[in-house]
Computed example of a mutant assay.
Amino acid sequence: MPYSVSTDKQHLDITLIHRYLSNSYWAKGVPLSVVEKSIEHSLCFGAYDSGGNQVGFARIITDRATFAYLSDVFVIDEKQGEGIAKLILSTIEKHPDLQGLRRTMLGTVDAHSLYQQFGFESIQQPEFLMQKKGIEAYV
């Protein structure tokens, strides 16, 4: 596969990440400053083609001991279907700082079958979970 994944934040194409996220269903209109801050405080995974161009992204919000939340996973439209998301998720799964966690969570509207391949499943006891909603949209 002509793709690689790196956690080096210096290689991230922040413009590409912001453009994709600000047009996504889950972060529509997100300001660049919020994307930059979220990257600064997360464990990030960039996917790159053989020329070093970024083609995908994911980030983990974690304490690196007990809990992680997988967020902002994407592959640019023209590279979808090439196994890049699976490569990113496989790399995340093997990352040394994410071993032995009690729980890793995520939210998705349309990619359940992808995440199930990596052991994710529907919440077994949703009545135990609560949320505090903040702002509804960035725009």
Rank of each mutant, 00 (worst) to 15 (best):
residue 98 L to C: 08
residue 21 L to H: 01
residue 88 I to W: 00
residue 75 V to Y: 04
residue 38 S to V: 04
residue 32 L to C: 09
residue 43 L to I: 10
residue 66 T to D: 10
residue 86 K to W: 08
residue 21 L to D: 01
residue 96 P to L: 05
residue 87 L to S: 03
residue 22 S to P: 00
residue 37 K to M: 12
residue 27 A to Y: 05
residue 85 A to T: 01
residue 74 F to L: 08
residue 83 G to S: 09
residue 34 V to Y: 09
residue 49 D to Q: 05
residue 82 E to V: 03
residue 15 T to V: 14
residue 49 D to V: 07
residue 40 E to G: 11
residue 40 E to I: 10
residue 51 G to K: 15
residue 87 L to I: 11
residue 71 S to W: 12
residue 59 R to H: 07
residue 58 A to S: 14
residue 98 L to S: 09
residue 15 T to A: 14
residue 78 E to P: 07
residue 15 T to F: 10
residue 70 L to W: 08
residue 75 V to S: 00
residue 38 S to E: 13
residue 68 A to F: 02
residue 55 V to D: 02
residue 50 S to G: 12
residue 73 V to M: 12
residue 74 F to R: 06
residue 32 L to Q: 12
residue 98 L to M: 03
residue 58 A to M: 06
residue 83 G to M: 05
residue 36 E to K: 14
residue 70 L to E: 01
residue 61 I to Q: 09
residue 55 V to Y: 01
residue 89 L to D: 00
residue 64 R to H: 14
residue 59 R to F: 01
residue 83 G to C: 07
residue 37 K to T: 13
residue 95 H to M: 05
residue 70 L to G: 10
residue 59 R to I: 03
residue 57 F to R: 00
residue 51 G to H: 14
residue 75 V to K: 02
residue 80 Q to V: 01
residue 69 Y to N: 14
residue 54 Q to A: 07
residue 84 I to N: 00
residue 66 T to N: 13
residue 74 F to T: 02
residue 37 K to S: 14
residue 67 F to D: 09
residue 71 S to C: 15
residue 34 V to P: 09
residue 85 A to D: 04
residue 59 R to Y: 10
residue 78 E to C: 13
residue 33 S to E: 14
residue 94 K to N: 14
residue 95 H to R: 04
residue 75 V to M: 02
residue 16 L to R: 07
residue 17 I to V: 12
residue 52 G to W: 05
residue 96 P to E: 13
residue 61 I to V: 15
residue 65 A to Q: 13
residue 62 T to P: 06
residue 48 Y to C: 03
residue 49 D to M: 04
residue 47 A to C: 06
residue 41 H to L: 15
residue 82 E to C: 13
residue 90 S to G: 15
residue 46 G to F: 00
residue 15 T to E: 15
residue 83 G to H: 11
residue 39 I to A: 05
residue 16 L to Y: 02
residue 21 L to E: 00
residue 50 S to F: 11
residue 78 E to M: 12
residue 49 D to T: 04
residue 55 V to R: 04
residue 15 T to H: 12
residue 64 R to S: 14
residue 96 P to F: 10
residue 20 Y to D: 11
residue 26 W to K: 04
residue 44 C to Y: 02
residue 83 G to Q: 07
residue 41 H to P: 09
residue 67 F to S: 11
residue 89 L to W: 01
residue 43 L to H: 08
residue 76 I to L: 12
residue 92 I to T: 03
residue 47 A to L: 04
residue 38 S to P: 02
residue 97 D to Y: 12
residue 83 G to I: 01
residue 72 D to M: 05
residue 39 I to T: 11
residue 85 A to S: 14
residue 97 D to P: 08
residue 40 E to P: 06
residue 33 S to C: 10
residue 50 S to C: 13
residue 54 Q to R: 06
